[in-house]
Nucleic acid binder design. Structure first.
Ligand SMILES: NC(=O)c1ccc[n+]([C@@H]2O[C@H](COP(=O)([O-])OP(=O)(O)OC[C@H]3O[C@@H](n4cnc5c(N)ncnc54)[C@H](O)[C@@H]3O)[C@@H](O)[C@H]2O)c1
Ligand SMILES: NC(=O)c1ccc[n+]([C@@H]2O[C@H](COP(=O)([O-])OP(=O)(O)OC[C@H]3O[C@@H](n4cnc5c(N)ncnc54)[C@H](O)[C@@H]3O)[C@@H](O)[C@H]2O)c1
Lengths: 215, 215
DNA sequence: CCATCAATGTGATAACTCTCACAGAGTTGT
DNA sequence: ACAACTCTGTGAGAGTTATCACATTGATGG
């Protein structure tokens, strides 16, 4: 795998992630090989876009034939770093945190959730399905350090997010995925992504409103 | 509110949604007025970007002063169409579906979830907190039509997503938010957004891998 | 072994999005 | 009433991302 340049569009990375899901399904459906044309139809991306996305990282297809689904999936996982094992923890075991804790696809992408934290005394001590016990937030720092956890998922209410982020950073976390509807601030060396599910719905409402106004 | 042109960047819409959350917090923290500079710091967007985003839709600030937080929030909600009431339903009341059903921020943005469906006979009939009872999927079409539901949220496993989408469309749905890791196909007149939480984590892994390789 | 064919990989180009710098509107103080 | 000042709104330009068209490559079959 060669990485020609450092300027890969963020949108490309997002698409690579969806290609994986398509490729997995294609294998189940007995397609050992697929063209960019057909893959594009599957995941609703133009064929040229797919080829361009892949060309940033190397040549993975066979001209005149297409891509080996199994091999391409492995290559993309390598590109994204999903062939590593990423020790991950969840802070805030509420409705959303519980959903994420039980989300099977995460494990398939290399993320293994090895700890869960909550501030609610009633929840602390609860053993979750995966053999993980909910720990108090006071143990965040030492557990993250001790278990060498690299990724932290924040699913606490908004007003707790900043403090939780700081505790995770103190423990030596390297990446944070924040679901709380507030932007947390962390040192520059920490990789941070804020996820806003609400904005997806808002966007839907906007598009629908546009259509309505136009007609 | 004037809409000068039709070509609003998607990124702008996404940011408008986050501005709302910031503006709400600013009001609670007793800031009746805010400059683009400070708002930018709050939601980690450059001041120029904020002004440009807003300028697509009109003039909302007072020169030399800034923006009225309360008024601006209302304006943005109007722009996004969040001042309407959006009757919404959830299909697939699993871990994620339940989290979304109980998510308070949705209601604040104008989305009122008025029905929930699941194919699991053990779940059908369960009364959820909001006074909503889980209905069988066979009732999707008639309920969507009867309750004039406009938005459908799909949180079923991937292999059920397409069929569910078709049932919702048959009932007259206008917008779909799909959380299943597969792209569903619907008629052009339906507004569709696919949400991929996995790709957010994948993206995080990619960024972290980049940093690691660089050093 | 060569001709034919299908689908990739990519440079050029078009489209889109963000950043910058500043003119000018409105406020505040004298 | 006027001057000094602050922060908005925006055109112009830089930078980024997607699309297009086609030359190129490797497979396939006679
Ligand atoms: N539920 C959703 O569908 C959804 C969607 C998008 C974003 N979010 C956001 O995700 C977060 C969690 O949502 P939820 O619906 O799961 O809420 P929830 O109330 O069900 O869960 C929050 C959990 O965080 C715990 N908590 C509170 N303070 C804490 C602290 N300081 N340290 C550790 N844990 C703490 C609570 O005990 C609770 O278990 C919220 O910020 C919400 O806005 C939720
Ligand atoms: N859990 C997460 O954190 C998460 C994150 C991102 C995406 N997703 C996706 O969201 C979807 C749901 O995830 P989950 O964790 O809630 O799974 P889940 O298994 O907890 O829930 C799925 C629910 O869908 C119901 N269902 C199955 N077939 C159905 C059908 N044909 N019609 C109606 N309902 C049906 C099931 O009975 C179940 O209640 C999956 O596609 C998953 O990939 C989940």
């Amino acid at each position: 795998m060669k990485t020609k340049e450092c300027k890969i569009p963020e949108a490309t990375i997002k698409r690579l992630s969806t290609y994986i899901n398509c490729l997995e399904r294609l294998q189940v459906e007995n397609h050992p090989v697929i063209s960019s044309e057909l893959l594009g139809e599957y995941c609703q991306v133009s064929p040229a876009q797919i080829r361009k996305d892949l060309s940033y990282f190397g040549e993975f297809g066979v001209r005149g034939v297409g891509y080996d689904t199994k091999k391409l999936e492995a290559e993309i996982k390598e590109i994204l770093g999903l062939n590593n094992n990423w020790p991950t923890c969840v802070v805030g075991v509420g409705k959303l945190g519980l959903a994420l804790l039980n989300f099977a696809l995460f494990r398939k992408h290399g993320f293994s959730i090895t700890a869960a934290f909550d501030s609610d005394p009633a929840k602390v001590g609860t053993e979750l399905s995966a053999g993980i016990t909910i720990q108090p937030t006071t143990e965040i720092e030492q557990t993250v350090t001790g278990k060498k956890i690299l990724i932290g998922i924040i699913t606490t209410p908004a007003d707790a997010a900043q403090k939780v982020a700081e505790q995770l950073v103190a423990g030596g976390i390297q990446g944070l995925l924040n679901f709380a509807p507030t932007k947390v601030k962390v040192p520059e060396e920490i990789t941070l992504r804020n996820v806003s599910i609400t904005s997806e719905l808002d966007n839907l409402a906007y598009l629908m409103t546009q259509k309505r106004r136009r007609s």
